[in-house]
């Protein structure tokens, strides 16, 4: 299964037939593996990775440190869920250190992001405090360098 997922992780558009040729499996087997992985949620989706800035759309990103009071029985999970249900929250992690939840938030303007933090996040009962870091420049996301690397030129024919 991992061989199939590795190929899809690199290029989600690779067809089952192509994956079959690359792995030595049959196309039928590849389809079955993909179906099972989707079912197990080992395969979460097939998204294009878009740099909206380059596409001419302004976006404001912020990293929010959230300090919370863990609740009896559910620990951090309940508050994490209340936060991750918001589409504005792009990722939510529980972290070790001086705060508890690391949340990335995206919006169209700074006002929009700060409104989300001050009106939705901060007022939750178990949230003790938040620190907002607006992103000034994004260099690399999910393994992709945003400005792109210059592809060095190879000689077209070499021994």
């Amino acid at each position: 299964m991992k061989d199939v997922l590795r190929i899809l992780e690199q290029d989600a558009r690779t067809t089952p037939e192509e994956i079959a040729a690359m792995t030595g499996r049959s196309p039928q087997e590849v389809r079955e593996i993909i179906r099972q992985a989707e079912k197990d949620r080992a395969l979460l989706g097939y998204h294009a990775q878009v740099n909206w800035e380059k596409a001419g759309e302004e976006q404001v990103w912020a990293l929010i440190e959230v300090k919370v009071t863990p609740q009896r029985d559910v620990g951090f999970d309940a508050i994490a869920e209340r936060i991750f249900r918001f589409p504005e929250a792009r990722s939510v992690y529980l972290v070790s250190g001086t705060f508890d939840l690391a949340v990335t938030v995206v919006g169209r303007t700074m006002q929009e992001v700060s409104a989300f933090v001050s009106e939705r996040l901060a007022p939750m009962e178990t949230v003790q405090g938040t620190v907002t870091h607006f992103l000034l420049k994004r260099y690399k996301e999910q393994g992709a360098i945003l400005d792109g690397e210059d592809r060095p030129q190879r000689l077209p024919v070499s021994p």
């Binding site: 190879r154 077209p156 024919v157």
Partner: peptide
Amino acid sequence: IRKFFDLLASMDGVISLGVG
């Protein structure tokens, strides 16, 4: 291999499987 260099130099849109 060398003689292909000259041919190639004058062409656009070539996909090369000739590298080593």
